Amino acid sequence: MVEDVEATVQDRMKRRDALARKSPPLVWIILDENVLLRPIGGPEVMREQLALLHEVALMRTVTVQIVPQSSDYYLGLEGSFNGLTMEAGDLAFVEAPGGGRIVQSAPEVRDFGIRWARICASALPWEASRDLMAQAMERFA
């Protein structure tokens, strides 16, 4: 459980600001469709959040893909992680309640790259994913 909600929100807002920089990072996000359907915070909050997600998905440096509910088991169900490609090398960050861990070992980072590719293979193309986001927004209108 997050103790300082306000600080957590401010940290996330700062990360979002990175997308508006002169040289923004390339971001590729894969989400499970259930994220679009679970009414956390109520209909108004969900609509606002989905509208923001849809807006971000239209940015030239951002790709958002959705794994549909119709998919059977896929590797993303085993837990979330972030892959980071930097000049100094690739890393992965495995998320967990209360924190996570940074993965630096080349073989383990490569395994996360393979896992990522397999998760992407389960996701809808970006156009269909954006359409699904728009449909989800309408549900919360």
Rank of each mutant, 00 (worst) to 15 (best):
L26K: 15
V27Q: 04
Y73W: 14
W126V: 12
L75N: 03
D111S: 11
P39R: 09
G41M: 07
L77E: 02
P24V: 01
V67G: 00
P25Y: 12
E95R: 02
N34R: 06
Q135E: 15
G100A: 00
R130E: 10
V56N: 04
G83N: 03
E95A: 04
F81V: 06
L132P: 01
G79N: 05
S70E: 12
L58R: 14
S129T: 09
I102S: 08
E138G: 13
D17V: 11
T63Y: 03
A134F: 07
A106M: 04
R38Q: 09
G100I: 07
D32P: 02
A51E: 15
I29P: 06
W28N: 09
I40E: 07
V94D: 06
V56A: 04
C120P: 00
P68R: 10
H54G: 15
W126N: 13
E95Q: 11
W28C: 12
E3A: 14
W28L: 01
C120V: 01
G113H: 09
Q49F: 11
L132Q: 06
S23L: 13
T63C: 12
E127A: 14
D90A: 13
M59P: 04
L84C: 11
W116A: 13
A121L: 08
A106K: 13
L58D: 15
P39V: 02
L19Q: 04
K22F: 14
I119Y: 07
I119F: 01
G98V: 05
A128H: 13
P24H: 08
T85L: 06
I30E: 07
E78H: 11
E87F: 09
F81A: 00
W116N: 10
A51Y: 12
G76R: 01
A136G: 08
V64E: 08
R115V: 03
L58E: 15
L26H: 14
G76T: 02
R110G: 07
A88Y: 02
